[in-house]
């Protein structure tokens, strides 16, 4: 009799566990846009990527967009951030709002003096860890040439556990054409830093294949 009671309790517990409300695989995406020097000329491409993200992220997903400037480890650099509501109609409204903010930024963006990519990535990592998203992405729209202002310390390991870092549109600098090893070294250095932080690294230069952006 006691065994039967225990069995019923176990079955009920299993049933409740199976029926418990679970949060599905949500995505958290943090896009960093380089605004240094002539890279502001590339902002239209960044808008295209952002539009792609807005079209593909769904309810429950989080999206944030921030600029990379001279001192990027700051919330002030966040252009727009949103966690999409569980109701589809509200999600659509949030996307419209996000797009408006992005358009406003693209039309008013000014070049920054320095490029603090490490600070921006650290800021992105902090944000993504707070979202509790199952899949976390940091998209870096930059040439990956870091140019820190005097006194800024950025030579440390960035915590990037279970975060996928995707470098987008890593345009070749003029010096790269002279010595392509600079370009390869930059990519290599960043790859090492990402893996050292526990993250994954990927480069996507061809923006016609954005469908691979949030894939494995």
């Amino acid at each position: 009799m006691k065994q039967l009671r225990n069995l019923i309790v176990v079955v009920l517990a299993l049933g409740l566990a199976a029926c418990g409300e679970k949060v599905p695989k949500t995505k958290g995406v943090y896009m960093l846009i380089d605004t240094s020097g002539t890279y502001t000329m590339e902002l239209d491409k960044a808008r295209k990527i952002a539009n792609y993200l807005l079209g593909n992220l769904n309810s429950g997903d989080s999206l944030a967009m921030a600029k990379i400037d001279s001192a990027s480890f700051s919330e002030k650099d966040i252009i727009a951030k949103v966690t999409f509501d569980s109701r589809p109609s509200t999600t659509t409204s949030q996307k419209h709002m996000f797009k408006r903010k992005l358009d406003e930024f693209v039309s008013t963006a000014k070049p920054s003096a320095h490029t603090d990519i490490t600070g921006a990535v650290l800021q992105a990592s902090e944000y993504l860890n707070e979202t509790n998203a199952k899949e976390k992405y940091i998209l870096i729209f930059s040439d990956l040439e870091e140019d820190l202002a005097k006194g800024y310390i950025r030579d440390f390991t960035i915590p990037l556990v279970s975060i996928k870092v995707v470098a987008l549109n890593v345009t070749k600098l003029r010096s790269d054409n002279v010595d392509p090893r600079d370009y390869l070294n930059r990519l290599d250095a960043w790859e090492k830093r990402v893996y050292a932080g526990g993250g994954e690294w990927k480069v996507l230069n061809d923006l016609d294949h954005l469908n691979k952006l949030l894939g494995s």
Binding site: A18, C19, G20, E21, K22, V23, P24, T26, N58, S59, G60, S86, R87, P88, S89, T91
Partner: peptide
């Protein structure tokens, strides 16, 4: 999804 939300799941199925 407007009524019960589009993000939650029960037993691997969307609520």
């Amino acid at each position: 999804s407007e009524m019960v939300g589009g993000t939650s799941e029960i037993g691997g199925w969307r609520t």
